[in-house]
Simulated assay, not measured.
Amino acid sequence: MAGGWAEDGAVQKQIDDTVDDAIAQARSQLHHGESAEFCVACDEPIPLARRQALPGVIYCIHCQEAKDKQQSAASGINRRGSKDSQLR
């Protein structure tokens, strides 16, 4: 049961949209194809075990961690609209 101007099922739709966006984001970051032997950012060799575990990898572990940290700081979808989420 929705309250106010919201239609029935609005909360579940919002949750579903958030999950769908997160899945699309994760899939867009998957690597494909042959792995690089050297990191494209720092030109350090990428260990064979990493290349075998992650097909299509192009970054060494250190550069990938830095890239992930930068992306997590920049991302932030706010669908809640609560005061707490707006204070960040």
Rank of each mutant, 00 (worst) to 15 (best):
G4H: 10
R50S: 05
Q52F: 01
P55V: 03
P45Y: 05
A36K: 12
A26I: 05
Q52G: 06
A26M: 13
I46W: 01
R27Y: 08
E7M: 12
Q64G: 02
C42Q: 05
Q52V: 02
A36N: 09
Q52I: 01
S85P: 02
I58Q: 12
C42D: 07
A74R: 04
A53Y: 11
V40L: 09
I77H: 14
S75M: 05
I58G: 08
A74C: 01
C60D: 04
G4T: 13
K69T: 03
M1W: 14
A2S: 10
R80W: 09
P47M: 03
Q25L: 09
R80C: 11
H62W: 11
A74V: 05
K69N: 04
A49Y: 07
K69G: 08
S85R: 14
F38N: 04
D21S: 14
I77P: 08
A41G: 02
G3W: 03
E37C: 11
I46N: 07
A24P: 01
Q14H: 15
Q52H: 03
D21W: 13
P47Y: 13
V19R: 11
D16Y: 03
Q25I: 06
R50C: 07
Q29V: 00
G3T: 12
I15W: 12
D43P: 11
E65A: 09
D20C: 08
P47W: 08
Q70E: 07
I23C: 01
V40S: 07
E44A: 12
I15T: 04
I46D: 01
A36G: 00
